[in-house]
Amino acid sequence: MEKVENTFNKIVELEKVHHLFFDGMTLMFGGFGGVGTPPKLVDTLLDSSVKNLTLIGNDAGFPTIGIGKVVCAGKVDKLIASHIGSNPVAGKMMTDNKLEVEFSPQGTLAERIRAGGVGLGGILVDVGITSEIVTRNKQILTSGGKDYILEPALTADLSIVFAKKADPYGNLIFDKSARNTNPLVAMAGTKTIVEVEEFVPLGELDPEEIVVPGVYVDYMVQSEGVNWTWVWEETYGT
């Protein structure tokens, strides 16, 4: 039988994804306080000349951990996140009008990302419906006799994701809580790059274990490995 060449290998060298980062782009990232944020891709962004970014993710990381390094480097114009309390530098930049921050409750933020990934225009939520601060400049819709805030879906030019294991097609498995928002983020980018700790041959992954199917993945790069326990202890203490 004639051998059929595998055309589904999305594993590339890091240099092959540099062109996907550009000035003024919207970048979505997985992670929770640094845990689950792809370290090599963050460092690649940090070392580049790219600036004027809009970032979308759970938080602002920490000054020396996760996406916080990019924020502290002054590369970000706007951040859409659930909180920035873990990064005092981001807080100072916000109060000094050097960083625009759009806050979104964590569950609402995750659902807005999911909505963007599946092609919805937005979601209806009642969180904060009685607060003028929350509803300011928001559209209010009524359904079933109840008022809701219309929250627009979120998408990005590029999503960066961290996975524990993947096959060449991009089917992904995550490491416990490092999974966090990564599956949602993987769906919502026009292009998605995944940093992977371990690659396995096609067919080796149990289909029931796959969290993100490869159809959402465009490129994958090899990670140098991350000790998430160490990151957690550095972040929150033992």
Rank of each mutant, 00 (worst) to 15 (best):
C72K: 09
V212P: 01
A188E: 03
V12K: 12
K51Q: 12
H19P: 01
G24I: 09
G66Y: 10
V101R: 03
I56E: 01
S86I: 05
E111V: 08
K146A: 14
M1L: 11
D96R: 13
G119T: 06
M93N: 06
Q139N: 12
G31C: 11
G128L: 04
F174G: 04
G30I: 01
V70W: 07
K165G: 01
D43G: 04
G145P: 07
G33C: 06
E208N: 13
N137W: 09
T7M: 14
T64A: 13
Y169K: 13
D47G: 11
K10C: 11
P183R: 02
I149Q: 04
V211D: 08
V217Y: 02
L109H: 08
V89P: 03
E2I: 09
G214S: 04
H18I: 10
S49D: 15
C72N: 07
I11N: 06
L124A: 14
K78R: 15
P168I: 09
I140E: 05
M187I: 00
K51D: 13
F32A: 14
G225Q: 10
H83T: 14
E224V: 01
P213E: 12
N58F: 14
N87D: 09
S177Q: 13
S104R: 14
N137Q: 10
T192M: 03
I123V: 13
L184C: 01
E204W: 01
G189A: 01
A166H: 00
V76M: 07
D157K: 05
D23H: 14
E102T: 14
N171W: 09
